[in-house]
Design a protein around this nucleic acid. Sequence first.
DNA 1: GCGTAACCTTACGCGCGAGTAGGTATGCTG
DNA 2: CAGCATACCTACTCGCGCGTAAGGTTACGC
Lengths: 216, 216
Amino acid sequence: MLARVSSTPTFKRLPRAIREQQMLDAAVRVFSRRGFHAASMDEIADDAGISKPMVYAYLGTKEELFVACLHRETARMMEAIAGAAAPDLPADQRLWRGLRAFFGFVGAHRDGWAVLYRQARGSQPFAGELAAMRARLVEVVAGMLDHALRTEGREVAATELEVVAYALVGASESLGDWLADHPDADPEKTATRMMNAAWLGAGQLLHGATWRPPTD
Amino acid sequence: MLARVSSTPTFKRLPRAIREQQMLDAAVRVFSRRGFHAASMDEIADDAGISKPMVYAYLGTKEELFVACLHRETARMMEAIAGAAAPDLPADQRLWRGLRAFFGFVGAHRDGWAVLYRQARGSQPFAGELAAMRARLVEVVAGMLDHALRTEGREVAATELEVVAYALVGASESLGDWLADHPDADPEKTATRMMNAAWLGAGQLLHGATWRPPTD
DNA sequence: GCGTAACCTTACGCGCGAGTAGGTATGCTG
DNA sequence: CAGCATACCTACTCGCGCGTAAGGTTACGC
């Protein structure tokens, strides 16, 4: 029989939509700092300021909850990037804005990123989700490169393009990961650095320069 | 009172050193296909063809076992790379050989790589180990770049170098990860592609070319 | 003001898997 | 061939954490 005279407004009954978001927020926090398996539903519920059965009622089992987190964070990130890199801009502008949006997102949602990038990787059930997102990104980047090439009259095999795109995306992810661990680092600056390496490297490649392995 | 008339030679009593290696082999396999938490000590013991208490006796608790795997695989990989990229070679040679060794290692030890790269990332206790390895790699690469620069009379801030090195390592890791999932892909070819992107991009940077963000 | 639906709780069942107790067989040393 | 160490086993304990059953309370329509 607790005296519920607490003044915190977070105590009232809240509609489902809001509670779900709170739960997802809490889940992302807990998953990111504990990892999927080490995270307990009790802790998530506690962190969300609600009891466990509510979590089950609204968002289902632990796996389903994690997938829900993945989806939300993925959607947010893709939206941020897609919104920044408008298709009608010139290639370098698109790349630059995309990178800036990406690093901005990671800087602002460090734990969301940790869930996406670090946790989802290991376990089969979720790796697919992540891979799908990455595939979309790679596709976009490859398309961007391809477009840039065609307007200059050059053409490169699709596989080749894809690998370059993959390397770019991978490098960005790694740098994003680094950013997530360095709270004092500046997302904008990181984006600039990445852009430098990417654009210059890609530019060379696109203009037909190659490095040949020695015949040792 | 089983009739142990089996003819399999894997049934004899074996010295500790050998059993430990078998256990580590099994552990790497199981960890890589299940993930750390989903892997059970029973399955590892079973896969190693021995009973659980032996695993505990020789390699300790589950965490200790995982760390042992990490150490072995890390050591093998660093050894492969260091052995290939002799310090007295010219910079592009070192980079090329290092990359080739790296992708060769990943191609040949796909599940070892999966343990290192995918599992260790998420959970705090192990992330440190991984980070340490990556830090060594980054340091080496940064040193390589720095050396290349100095012999050409140029000089770049350490932070700047480190970020470039980090991007290179990250891109390689991502491509390695891609390689691990594509058994039909050729490590050598992947290494060549990575080298192209890396060397051309780095080359540009090192010669002072930069891309400047527009003032939008 | 009363039913009914949405919100929310406490308190449990129960399986799975880490880690251990205690004992057996085999080889090596004197 | 005693004695001791090393290799090896079966069979348990026990806690943790997912998921649920069963019930209480606030709001809202009528």
